[in-house]
Design a protein around this nucleic acid. Structure first.
Lengths: 212, 212
DNA sequence: GCATAAAAGTGGTCTGACCACTTTTGGCAC
DNA sequence: GTGCCAAAAGTGGTCAGACCACTTTTATGC
């Protein structure tokens, strides 16, 4: 009833309907949505309009599609959001530096969080990383940072970090130097002991070894 | 021809192309984009695909369309983006909290940056805000924070903050209490003097006056 | 029972058509 | 020439049908 009253665009209305559908049918993240053709019929609209709505949600990272397979509710939220916004926003060199800095902001915060939280400090993953570092020595920077940010428990920050890391990838993908290794170990140990300041200091020193 | 050979989705490619087009043709916010039919021809794709891309960007608030008039680069964006995302994302409390925390991460960082940078500390805007606070007393929290983040010079962080602030809006839009006002003033003054620790402390106390 | 091929289902894209609305154009009266 | 107004052109909004490419399901043959 109320659908007819609105003079708004069909595809926006469909976005609304989809949300209702997902709630009512209790579709879980990762769950399958009705096919495009079924949605057309159910909502009484053309397939193009359904697709415009679906594509919009896809760009937002709210749904995922598998060619020939179906449409699924995204398991993890907004990753494309940042990417697309960035595409329009990040244009000059200054922006590249901003990505770098912003990424580090989240890394520092995660280190602080872990250092300050007893339960997180006690996580076995730190020892594991430490040992791996000891044995192989070829550990990749981003693996360590990723674990720390995951541990910090802020999923949104994790999503943002993933995006930034993707841009900034070349930098982080390098293997650590001998000097760098020491700083990573110091950072991990400090974190485990709850020495926030020292952990951040070691992180900073580690960064310096990367900047050559 | 060539577009089909790519394994990526056409509509995503179009989103990319549009961004390039906007930059090359120097289309200003509020400016007019080529019509859908022109875009089809230029990009060598079907109109449906062009529309899927445009509709996606519209949902993101990056463009606006006028029926019969044309498509325009958004002057001020993120209007329904917020609405739609919140519909889908902000369902569980955890996400809401993550937004909240992530926003504060960027605020804290900006305060630190300004405190540590002589040129930024000397900006006249702080006195201006301080006086405004003195006189009116009805200053809005987000105005202060926005200025600080702008001053910090990281446009990406600013962009992210705008996003988060939009979600988290109800919280930040409140007028500050008497207690809050004192803390804001303390924060500003500490920042100006370069007392990073004190500024962050005041920020924290200010937050406490807002909660509950 | 199982592997494999056929069929059905599904997303991806293009074309053409029609409608509703806006902007531009052209002609008429003054 | 000026000004107004209707016709024409331009543009977004929507739908229907047709293929294609890919995945999932079903049926077949051994």
């Amino acid at each position: 009833m109320d659908k007819q009253t609105e003079n708004k665009k069909v595809f926006l209305e469909i976005v609304h309907q989809l949300r209702t559908l997902i709630r009512i049918e209790k579709i879980q993240p990762g769950g399958k949505l009705p096919s495009e053709r079924v949605l057309c019929e159910r909502l009484g609209v053309g397939r193009s309009s359904v697709r415009e709505a679906l594509r919009s949600l896809e760009l937002l990272g709210l749904i995922e599609t598998k060619h020939g397979g179906g449409t699924f509710l995204a398991a993890t939220h907004n990753h494309q959001l940042v990417e697309v916004l960035s595409m329009f926003i990040l244009e000059d060199e200054k922006s590249k530096k901003d990505v770098h800095i912003t990424r580090q902001i989240h890394e520092k915060e995660a280190i602080s969080i872990v250092s300050r939280t007893v339960e997180l400090r006690a996580l076995p993953v730190w020892d594991s990383l430490f040992v791996k570092l000891e044995l192989e020595g070829t550990i990749i920077c981003k693996d360590v940072l990723r674990e720390i940010i995951i541990a910090s428990g802020n999923r949104l920050a994790l999503k943002i970090w993933f995006q930034l890391e993707a841009y900034d990838g070349a930098f982080l993908s390098r293997e650590s130097t001998e000097d760098g290794k020491i700083h990573i170990q110091t950072m991990l140990k400090s974190m485990q002991l709850g020495y926030e300041r020292e952990a951040l200091q070691a992180y900073k020193q580690w960064l310096e070894t990367l900047e050559e």
